[in-house]
């Protein structure tokens, strides 16, 4: 028995960092009930780089928001790092986000009245550390994203690519477990988008972070270790997707 148990533990894969079980999200819009996510099962191991793709309204941003803890599931379980975050109170969830999640938005969402340095410093204000420690962490984060020389610039003085670098620095400065990006290259030109994806991939590998992005861009998705497709709130298997693509290709007459 003992041997079997030991054997069983040795053979079992490590539990996934993110476990979604029958994850469902519904909300009311007027008289209608919208279900952007329906009984979704998903495991994401630590260190994974996952791209979520799918048409508009497929539920990919909803899934991302649920994993980031900025939205709450209507049903199912969402266990991240052993914590069922759906059961956390509003305040505890905020604390959890500040420690475990770095979020990169499509439109950067920097605070316009704060400099690049102050924007990156914002999440650190929630943690008890000295001003000197904060300074060190902010400087390191700005160095990592290659924008240290613009630390005293305001968002309006930066290009889109530079703003997104600051946003990435803000996302990694607290050393979170998961970094999520909602179309992080969606507002950038091709060259800047490529640079940002290279940066995110490098950071993910160098820092050992789990990275999940939502994207419409196949080129951006190509940087990910794996890509998942969603349609109408459900994951679509790769084989089904290929068959569906084939069926939509026009046949020669």
């Amino acid at each position: 028995m003992t041997t079997n148990n030991t054997h069983s533990r040795t053979l079992s894969p490590a539990p996934a960092l993110i476990q979604c079980r029958r994850l469902t999200k519904t909300y009311k819009k007027g008289d209608n009930t919208i279900t952007p996510l329906q009984e979704l099962d998903l495991d994401v191991p630590a260190g994974d780089f996952l791209a979520l793709m799918g048409p508009s309204g497929s539920g990919k941003t909803t899934l991302l928001n649920l994993i980031a803890g900025i939205d709450r599931p209507s049903g199912g379980n969402l266990i991240i790092g052993g914590t069922d975050i759906a059961t956390l109170s509003r305040s505890k969830l905020a604390d959890w986000r500040s420690t475990h999640v770095g979020y990169v938005f499509q439109l950067y969402n920097l605070v316009p009245v704060l400099t690049a340095y102050e924007n990156v410093e914002l999440p650190l204000l929630l943690h008890s550390m000295s001003a000197r420690e904060r300074h060190q962490k902010v400087s390191t984060a700005l160095e990592l994203v290659g924008i240290a020389d613009r630390h005293d610039h305001y968002p309006r003085q930066l290009s889109g690519g530079q703003e997104q670098r600051v946003a990435i620095a803000r996302a990694i400065v607290t050393d979170p477990t998961i970094i999520v990006g909602d179309e992080p290259t969606g507002d950038l030109d091709q060259e800047s988008a490529q640079a940002i994806m290279n940066l995110m991939t490098r950071l993910c590998e160098d820092l050992g972070k789990t990275l999940i992005i939502v994207t419409h861009d196949a080129k951006s998705a190509a940087y990910a270790k794996r890509t998942l497709h969603l349609e109408k709130g459900r994951l679509v298997e790769a084989a089904d997707l290929a068959a569906r693509r084939e069926s939509t290709v026009p046949q020669p007459v």
Binding site: I70, R97, S98, N109, V111, P123, L126
Partner: peptide
């Protein structure tokens, strides 16, 4: 939206 961003960063509602 800015307050939503702050909450995303981990700012509590009370703060």
């Amino acid at each position: 939206k800015e307050h939503a961003v702050l909450q995303t960063l981990g700012f509590r509602s009370g703060l």
